[in-house]
């Protein structure tokens, strides 16, 4: 190969690399734009619970809004469980948010409970996880959590009154006490009737237990 041909090939390789790099950047941006498709329609919400209170399977999930594993459990498992079991009346899901991981968790849980007061817990939770996925715990500031409430369509003055108020603070303590009494010392932590699933697990691990409980 002559030097002139080599020069041509070298430039071609460099330009090809540049195009590949830019294509990856484009894919990443498209992926980020497509990512927050988390909202799931939840029927019969009552506070932080959803589903028939007399359902055969009672599911309790402890999580912390700053916990990455909890976030993945939300995206990969929670929505599917709601669609398959909660919305169909076979199970009831109760969410108990904890504040293990520090001040941003406290703010996020206060916001979640304030949203729950308006019967819109899951809508707010979807927006909260999407914000966390985009920005991490810096998404949990007073201003951004209040802005999320506006975006979700909550009543702002009612939200601001509940957020950080005495009632939500007492509720946070009550949930922490329940966790302690049930021996929960890590998140995510799920109880399916009397069975425990500690940590993040694939969807089928949860469906297997729930299906077994349903036929008992």
């Amino acid at each position: 190969m002559r030097a002139q041909a080599r020069t041509t090939y070298a430039w071609t390789a460099a330009v090809l690399g540049l195009v590949m790099g830019l294509a990856l950047v484009g894919l990443s941006l498209a992926s980020v734009a497509a990512a927050p498709a988390s909202a799931v329609t939840v029927k019969s919400q009552q506070g932080t619970s959803a589903g028939d209170p007399n359902a055969k399977v009672q599911i309790v999930l402890y999580f912390d809004p700053e916990c990455v594993h909890c976030m993945r459990l939300y995206y990969d498992v929670e929505g599917q469980l709601i669609k398959r079991y909660v919305n169909t009346g076979q199970a009831r899901l109760e969410i108990r948010p904890l504040t293990f991981l520090g001040p941003p968790s406290v703010k996020a849980v206060q916001a979640l409970l304030a949203a729950a007061d308006q019967g819109r817990y899951w809508e707010y939770q979807a927006a909260l996880w999407d914000a966390y996925q985009q920005a991490g715990p810096v998404a949990y500031t007073d201003a951004s959590l209040k802005a999320l409430a506006v975006r979700v369509g909550l009543n702002s003055s009612q939200f601001n009154a509940s957020y950080g108020g005495g009632a939500t603070t007492a509720e946070i303590k009550a949930i922490a006490d329940k966790a302690k009494s049930q021996g929960v010392d890590s998140v995510p932590h799920m109880f399916i009737n009397s069975q425990e699933v500690v940590g993040e697990a694939p969807l089928q691990d949860f469906t297997r237990i729930i299906d077994a409980e349903l036929v008992r």
């Binding site: 090939y9 070298a10 390789a13 090809l16 540049l18 790099g21 990856l24 990443s28």
Partner: peptide, 27 residues
């Protein structure tokens, strides 16, 4: 040249990710 192509692609993508770390997610 194959290695050069991949290295240039990696450099472009890394530059983008570093920008994201500093200016988008601030971490």
């Amino acid at each position: 040249l194959g290695a050069l192509s991949l290295a240039v692609a990696g450099m472009v993508f890394s530059a983008y990710l570093t920008y994201v770390e500093f200016f988008v997610i601030d971490a």
